[in-house]
């Protein structure tokens, strides 16, 4: 490490700015979005897997994939985005599995939520915390 004392201070100053999001502001919106998909029904937490990066180097392109064997449809919600709805996959008769991937935008560090509507009418929900760095330094 060859940083000068001053640089070391700058670097050591430490800023995890992304953590300080106005989460409460979006809490109501996410509850509404969940209720809109489940119709207020209870959800279980088994039978659905959401894969998302622990750390996303940029919130513009966050790869996610979701799997819920036996699901009719799966919705993805971003709890910390101004509008929580991201996308909904609906599987047809020729779907090879109830599994799909996409790339999504996250406005900051937050929980990504996936809810599956099963063929028997029940719902399964899971979530995954994604830390979005303010990266992309260097212009």
């Amino acid at each position: 490490m060859n940083f000068t004392r001053r640089e070391a201070l700058i670097i050591g100053a430490g800023a995890v700015t992304a953590a300080a999001l106005p989460m409460q502001a979006f809490a109501a919106a996410i509850d509404d979005a969940i209720a809109a998909f489940t119709g207020g029904a209870e959800t279980t937490d088994s039978g659905i897997t959401l894969t998302a990066p622990e750390i996303a180097e940029n919130g513009n392109t966050v790869p996610i994939s979701v799997s819920a064997p036996g699901a009719e449809s799966i919705t993805i919600l971003a709890s910390g985005n101004p509008t929580p709805n991201v996308l909904t996959f609906t599987f047809g008769p020729l779907a090879g599995s109830q599994e799909a991937s996409s790339r999504i935008r996250l406005a900051g560090t937050q929980d990504v939520i996936a809810i599956a509507k099963m063929k028997d009418g029940t719902f399964a929900m899971t979530s995954s915390a994604v830390k979005v760095t303010i990266g992309g330094c260097g212009g």
């Binding site: 700058i10 670097i11 050591g12 100053a13 430490g14 800023a15 995890v16 700015t17 760095t133 303010i134």
Partner: peptide
């Protein structure tokens, strides 16, 4: 100015 952080 730069918000550098080694904290990550």
């Amino acid at each position: 100015l730069v918000q550098m952080a080694a904290t990550a």
